[in-house]
Structures are given as C-alpha cells and as structure tokens.
C-alpha cells in the first residue's frame, strides 16, 4: 500500500501525468467551446465529434513521429521525455476516438441497427469499428505491467497501429466532409509522406542493411497507403458519396 502511495506521489514528476490531465481538460474544454458557439443544437454535437476525431488522428500521427524523430536526431534534447510521452499520447488518441464514436453513433445515428444504414455508412462504420478496437487494445496494453507481461508480443501487437491508421484514413475519406477538403487531405498527405520518408531513410539509407521482412512491409505499406490516398483524392475530386460533390457514376454501385 505504501509502495502504491509513493508511486502516486511520483506521478507529477513524469510527463504522462500531465498528458493525462491535459487530455481530460481538453475534452471538457472542447465540449464547453462547441456548446458556447453552437448552443444546444445538434451542430454542437457534430462539431464536437469532428474535433475529437481530428484530435485523435493528430495524436496518433504525433505518437508515430516520435520514434523516427528520435532515431534521426539522436542528440535531440528531451529524448527520454518524448519516449516516455509516446504511450500516453496513444492512450489519449484512443480516448478521443472513443468520444468521437460514442457521440456520432449514439447521438447522430441514434444507435441505429447498422444493417439498416445506407451501404456507404455500413462500410465506413465497419472499418471505423475495427480501427477503434485496435486503438482500445493498444491503449489497454499501454501500461508498464502489460508491457512486461506481453514481452515480444507487446511490440507485435503495437505494430497494429499502422493498420489502424490506414483504416481510419479510409473511414474518414469515405464519410468525412472535412477530410476530403484541400487543407485536410493536403496536410495528411504531407505528414504521412514525411513519416514514410523517415522510415525509408532509416531502413534503406546510407549504411543500412534492410531485412527482407522490413523491405516487404515498407513496400506494401507504401502501396496500400497510396491506394487509400488515391481513394481520398478521388472523393475530393468530385466522386464523394457524402461530401456532396458527386458526379453520379458510383451511385449505381451503392
């Protein structure tokens, strides 16, 4: 018991404690902000789930950037702090994603039977649900005890984050309104492009001897990511089901 208490006393000395606090604070503040801007209307709920969704995706990308950043700049200041922060940034991303899912599905969609929804939403929700499950599994195993217990499986499990990002992108491009607009899809392309460039440099750069597995994973990862973005840009360029700039053709298949 005294051990536990002394452990709690040490929490404020670490960055994770503040990331947790900030996450809870921002959750409440965003609720307050949307309520004060959009009142009691449902637009407030729509904006709020949107903000939580983008916060979640941004945090995932931030967590994914820390590894390559520390490897590319080995003398960077605060490296141990960044590494320590990474896991809680991921937990925070799962937290915001859960709010996004809860608000959009229960409030906007009245917890409707997914089988009765239009096909475009069925597809996007199925993909989003898998991404959410992955985020929850990763968040649930982001604590030291799970890390020690799972051993090498911890690293294998946590690689699923890359799959989760691809699913989230597909989901967002399929039914999001903002995600297929220039500022959003452009920024996503830039950030994810830079992440890939960093991984390619670290894997294949000067003095590196990439393993076959790494080469295969990177190549296929790149191809699939390009495919997902091609889908996103096709939505942007006027074939979107939901964003409303459709030209017609693909509606036949729905």
């Amino acid at each position: 018991m005294t051990n536990f208490v002394s452990q709690i006393r040490r929490w404020p000395q670490g960055i994770r404690f503040y990331i947790g606090l900030t996450t809870v604070l921002v959750t409440a503040e965003m609720y307050w902000y949307t309520k004060s801007v959009y009142g009691d209307s449902n637009t407030a709920a729509i904006r709020l789930q949107d903000i939580y969704a983008w916060l979640s995706l941004s945090l995932i990308l931030l967590a994914l950037a820390i590894g390559p950043l520390c490897s590319l700049l080995p003398n960077i200041r605060g490296k141990s702090l960044l590494r320590d922060a990474r896991r809680l940034i991921g937990v925070s991303a799962a937290w915001f994603a859960a709010w996004h899912v809860g608000i959009s599905y229960i409030n906007q969609f009245k917890a409707a039977n997914p089988l009765t929804l239009p096909a475009a939403y069925q597809r996007a929700f199925a993909v989003g649900a898998v991404a959410m499950l992955i985020l929850l599994a990763l968040a649930g195993t982001s604590f030291d005890a799970a890390f020690k217990r799972l051993g090498v499986w911890w690293f294998r499990l946590h690689r699923l984050i890359y799959l989760s990002v691809l699913l989230i992108l597909f989901h967002a491009f399929a039914i999001g309104v903002r995600s297929v607009s220039w500022p959003y899809i452009g920024t996503l392309t830039l950030v994810i492009g830079l992440l890939f460039a960093a991984h390619l440099y670290l894997g294949f750069g000067p003095g590196k001897e990439p393993t076959i597995l790494r080469s295969i994973v990177l190549c296929y990862g790149l191809l699939i990511t390009i495919a997902v973005f091609a889908y996103g840009y096709s939505q942007h360029l006027g074939l979107s089901d939901i964003a409303g700039n459709s030209q017609g053709g693909q509606y036949e298949s729905r």
Binding site: T43, K110, A112, L117
Partner: peptide, 12 residues
Amino acid sequence: FNASASAHVLQS
C-alpha cells in the same frame, strides 16, 4: 448529447 435531432443525423 440528448439534444433534438438536426443535421447530418439519422431519422427513421
């Protein structure tokens, strides 16, 4: 968010 229904929402 039990507010009444509005835009981008489902009704049956």
